Simulated scan of single mutants.
Amino acid sequence: MLFAFLCTDKPGHLNVRMETRPTHLEHLNKLNAEGTLKFAGPFLDDEGKPNGSLVVVEATDMAAARTLAEADPYYLAGLFEKVEVKAWNWTINKPE
Rank of each mutant, 00 (worst) to 15 (best):
E81V: 08
L44S: 06
N89K: 14
F39L: 15
K10N: 09
A40W: 08
H24D: 01
E34N: 07
K30Y: 12
P11M: 14
A64T: 13
A77H: 03
L37M: 11
F80D: 02
G52P: 00
A4C: 10
D9Y: 05
N29V: 12
A87G: 11
D46I: 08
A65T: 03
T36E: 08
D46H: 11
R17S: 04
A65V: 07
L44P: 00
N15H: 13
A4P: 10
G48Y: 03
E19L: 14
E47R: 13
V85E: 09
A71V: 06
K38V: 11
E58A: 01
L28C: 08
L14F: 03
T20Q: 06
T91W: 15
T8D: 10
S53N: 08
K86V: 12
A59W: 09
D61M: 08
F39E: 05
L31H: 07
L25Y: 14
T23A: 10
T8M: 14
G78W: 10
T91N: 14
E34P: 06
T60E: 15
A33F: 09
E81P: 06
N89W: 12
F3D: 01
P22A: 02
D72I: 01
H27D: 13
T91G: 11
A59I: 00
A63N: 15
L44C: 00
V16P: 02
L79V: 04
L2S: 11
T8C: 04
P50H: 08
F39Y: 09
L2M: 14
K10D: 08
